[in-house]
Design a protein around this nucleic acid. Sequence first.
DNA 1: TTATTCATGTAATGGGTTACATGATTAG
DNA 2: CTAATCATGTAACCCATTACATGAATAA
Lengths: 175, 175
Amino acid sequence: MSLRHAVLGLLAGRPASGYELAKHFQRTLPHIWYARNHQLYPELSRLAADGHVEVGKEGPRGRRLYEINDSGREELRRWLVDVDSDRTARSETYLRAFLLSAALSPDDALQALDREVGHWRADRDEMLALTKHMADDPEADEAHQLAVSMTLKLSEAMLAWADEAREAIEARPRD
Amino acid sequence: MSLRHAVLGLLAGRPASGYELAKHFQRTLPHIWYARNHQLYPELSRLAADGHVEVGKEGPRGRRLYEINDSGREELRRWLVDVDSDRTARSETYLRAFLLSAALSPDDALQALDREVGHWRADRDEMLALTKHMADDPEADEAHQLAVSMTLKLSEAMLAWADEAREAIEARPRD
DNA sequence: TTATTCATGTAATGGGTTACATGATTAG
DNA sequence: CTAATCATGTAACCCATTACATGAATAA
């Protein structure tokens, strides 16, 4: 159950409404942890019921600003420091890359690989642009920079892998 | 629903029983896509019901050998070539790394980071050992090599990120 | 004969996605 | 006044995990 800790982590940075959190997940963390409105609202209610966050006064359109409290911070710290991480993954991106290299004819594989490479290049370029942008911005927060840098390094790793995969596929006998 | 395609992908390499597939997931793909016995048995039944795989004769202890057929290969190809990938991720590994850098005191953060670095080093070393081992083995299959290489590159990316995160955390004012 | 590995499954629960459902506020 | 954005939720369904449950074959 990491959504709970992802939410606590974002709220530790600054108070936010469910709607703002959903945007934050979508903009900054889509390649790390994706979560949507519909999932966030119930989770925020649960966090409030469990006493880990507090709800400030309602804003326009029923906006509820959630703030982390000491109990929430302690829960987050406990999870990060005391609980060992779940090392297993379920990544469609990586699965796809593996399968296209393993289970397609060379022509199909190269075509599918090209498409994935396009995505990773786009990710990388977006992260490079953000990096540049943040370097000029004295307001930029470090956590966001580190998230960007992680996504950048992961895209670069996949691009390097793709070069290797391409070579291996091209070396195979054609159908 | 990628489990289905993961299974078809493995069966495209060679026929296998549910038990063997579970092992394969655990040994080769834990950092790409993790699946267990309990999940595989029902999925294999469904694949058989949908006509994508066929069940050979039963072996000892009720062992059922599943074989992919043309319909299964077509379904796999369709998914890999025609369907655009789901680009969103839900990775506890990456979420943790991000949160520890974002939401802990410097001392806690460095401690938690050390633990994660330990895991990534272990992954990298294991993958390096496998790479060496496969280089000597003329039997080694290319798909397995590419899976190992992907995991290796991803671990190395996270180790490089960790160096950067450590620097950023150390540069922060201590509590 | 005992432990390990092989081999398969079901039931209950929990988490996530999709579809459904509503409406206020602000910018142009 | 119209479109976009802000803002929140519920219900049904599907997928995944955990706990439960069983037992045959092989190696020591």
